[in-house]
Computed example of a mutant assay.
Amino acid sequence: MTLVISPAARDALEAWLTQLRALDGAADHTITAYSADVAGYLSFLSLHRGGTEGLAALTAVPLADLRAWMAHEKGRGLSPRSLARALSAVKGFTGWLAEREGADATAVLSARAPKFRRKLPRPLSVDAAADVLDRVGDQSLEPWIAARDAAVVTLLYGCGLRISEALGLTGATHPLPEVLRITGKGGKQRLVPVLPAARAAVARYVSLCPFELAATGPLFRGARGGALNPRQIALVMEKTRAQLGLPASATPHALRHSFATHLLSAGGDLRAIQELLGHASLSTTQGYTAVDTQRLMEVYDKAHPRA
């Protein structure tokens, strides 16, 4: 579909995206998604209103037009989750534009996103997670690749890292310290303790890796020496879960989820887990971790004054 956007609106969108990238540290995939969301919104407004309009009009979009855009997006198959993300992008752009233009964008900024149920990967059991760590290195006949896969998976489960964070480590991080400084989403930094097992797994990989691991280059390498593609770890997990008879939900990201869930089930403090995961708000951690009824009742029985 051809987008119908005025040059002024296009320039404003690029300026906003540049700010998100430079000042807010937004990830590349976030920039790409927000760009498409807002560009689609601006094009819809032009077609809906019968022509492109100035920047001032974009800050004063009536709620009826905003709802028409949301209905259009829903009609073309956008899920509630994706629509909520798109509305967040539109609000961000509109708020930035209103501040720059000295306008009031209350109607857009007060719009409510559609409700959706957050889908999160189910955690592995403690035994299943241990089995994955034991078997993931069996998926390759090449010793250094087997050691590499085991090291990455151990970091995901042992430190609760995102796959992008693990693969973002550079050669300078070896040998791994007892505490890693991780830069996560939005450029937010956090300190993550590193288990001896994780340090040992990475050390073994490094000792077998046939490529020179420069301080500024990627720590984990692909078969040809380039940066390791996260898809390779996903494929290794697919093979491993098939061997162990685990469900399709046993993905690399599920290991991070398992890290948080197992810590919480063992009595870990929710706010401490929030810091380890790098969540901006406690509510995200509460939604991310699953605690069974038995564990909740145990806490209730021990903590409630009337118990």
Rank of each mutant, 00 (worst) to 15 (best):
S43A: 07
L23E: 12
A57I: 03
H48P: 12
L58V: 02
D37N: 05
R49E: 13
P62E: 12
H29N: 11
A68F: 10
A39N: 04
V38K: 02
R67M: 14
S35E: 09
A60P: 10
D65W: 14
L55R: 10
S46L: 09
G54D: 06
G40V: 03
G51K: 15
Y34N: 00
A60K: 09
I31D: 00
Q19P: 05
A22I: 10
V38F: 04
A36W: 04
T30D: 01
A56H: 14
H48S: 12
G51N: 13
A36S: 06
Y34K: 00
Y41D: 00
L55C: 11
G50A: 14
G51W: 14
L55Q: 10
A36H: 07
I31Y: 02
F44W: 05
F44R: 03
R21E: 13
D28N: 05
D28C: 05
T30C: 06
A39H: 04
L58M: 06
L66H: 06
L55G: 09
S46M: 08
S35V: 00
D24V: 04
D37L: 04
S43C: 08
P62W: 13
T59E: 11
A60G: 12
I31T: 02
S46I: 07
G54Q: 01
L23I: 09
D65I: 12
G25A: 03
A68R: 08
R21N: 09
Q19L: 08
Y34G: 00
R67T: 13
L47K: 11
I31V: 07
A57P: 03
A68T: 09
V38H: 02
D65T: 13
Y41P: 01
L55P: 06
Q19W: 12
I31G: 01
A33L: 05
D65N: 11
S43L: 09
S43I: 10
L58K: 01
Q19S: 09
F44E: 01
T32E: 10
A33H: 03
G51E: 11
D65A: 15
T59Y: 14
L58D: 00
L47V: 15
A22M: 09
A36G: 01
L63R: 15
G25C: 04
R21W: 07
D24H: 10
S35H: 09
H29Y: 10
A68M: 10
I31S: 00
S43R: 07
L23P: 03
P62F: 12
H29S: 08
D24W: 07
A57T: 07
T30H: 03
H29D: 07
T59S: 14
L63N: 13
R67N: 15
A64G: 14
V38Q: 02
G50I: 12
A64S: 15
Y34S: 00
L23N: 06
A27Y: 06
A36K: 04
A39R: 06
G51Q: 14
H48V: 11
S35D: 10
S35T: 07
V61R: 11
L42M: 05
L58C: 03
P62Q: 10
L45G: 00
T59W: 11
A60R: 12
R21M: 08
D65E: 15
L20F: 08
T30L: 07
T59F: 13
S35C: 03
A64E: 15
L63Q: 15
G40I: 02
A64F: 15
G40Y: 02
G40Q: 02
E53R: 15
